[in-house]
C-alpha cells in the first residue's frame, strides 16, 4: 500500500487518540511502523501530528532502564501519563461527524474495548458515548497484560 507519510488513523481533532489507537489496535503495518521506528518522537509528531508534550509522554519509556529483551516497557506511572494526556485531549470534546476510516485489527480491539469505543465515538463518529469514568478501564487495558484467573 502506498504511504504518503500520514498515519492511517490520524485525526486532526484528536491526534493523541488517533496515535494511541494506531499503536494499540491499528493494522499490522501501521503498528510495525511504530515498533520499528528509529525515532519514535518523529513518528508521533510527523505521522500523527501530536504536540511536543504528547509525543514526550508517548516515548517516555525510552528513559527506563534497558530490559533484557532490549525493549523499554512503560511503567505504570508512564501509562497513567498517557491516559491523563488523553483525558486532557478529550475533555469537553465534540465527536466528529461520521467519517470513513481504516479498519482496526479485530483481535486487538477485543483487548482494548474502551479505546476502540473512544476512537469510534470521537474520530469515526459512529460509537456510543463512552462511560463518564472511562479513564479507569482504559488504564487497566493499557496496564493489564497479565492473564488473571480470578
Amino acid at each position: 500500500m502506498a504511504d504518503d507519510g500520514v498515519g492511517y488513523y490520524k485525526s486532526d481533532e484528536f491526534p493523541l487518540l488517533g496515535l494511541v489507537t494506531a499503536v494499540c489496535c491499528g493494522n499490522r503495518s501501521e503498528r510495525e511502523r511504530f515498533s520499528r521506528s528509529v525515532d519514535y518522537y518523529a513518528y508521533c509528531v510527523a505521522r500523527y501530528g501530536v504536540s511536543d508534550t504528547q509525543a514526550r509522554v508517548m516515548t517516555a519509556a525510552a528513559h527506563n532502564p534497558a530490559a533484557e529483551d532490549q525493549l523499554c516497557v512503560p511503567t505504570h506511572e508512564q501509562l497513567v501519563a498517557i491516559v491523563d494526556a488523553m483525558v486532557l485531549e478529550l475533555t469537553d470534546a465534540v465527536p466528529s461527524p461520521v467519517v470513513q476510516a481504516y479498519k482496526l485489527d479485530p483481535h486487538l480491539t477485543h483487548l482494548f474495548p474502551t479505546l476502540d469505543n473512544l476512537y469510534a465515538y470521537y474520530v469515526i463518529g459512529t460509537g456510543a458515548a463512552p462511560d463518564a469514568n472511562w479513564r479507569v478501564p482504559l488504564l487497566a487495558e493499557f496496564d493489564q497484560f497479565g492473564t488473571f484467573i480470578w
Binding site: V23, C24, R31, S35, S37, V38, D39, Y40, Y41, A42, D52, A55, R56, M58, T59, A60, A61, A62, H63, N64, A66, A67, Q70, L71, C72, V73, P74, Q78, L79, I82, F142, F145, G146, T147, F148, I149, W150
Partner: peptide, 25 residues
C-alpha cells in the same frame, strides 16, 4: 495466587537509540 508474567505493551520502545534525546525542544 501469586501471578507473574512477562510484561508486554504496545507502547514499548526500543532502548537504543534514545529518540527523545534527539527531539526538538
Amino acid at each position: 495466587y501469586l501471578g507473574f508474567a512477562q510484561r508486554r505493551s504496545p507502547f514499548a520502545v526500543a532502548s537504543l537509540p534514545h529518540p527523545i534525546e534527539h527531539a526538538p525542544p
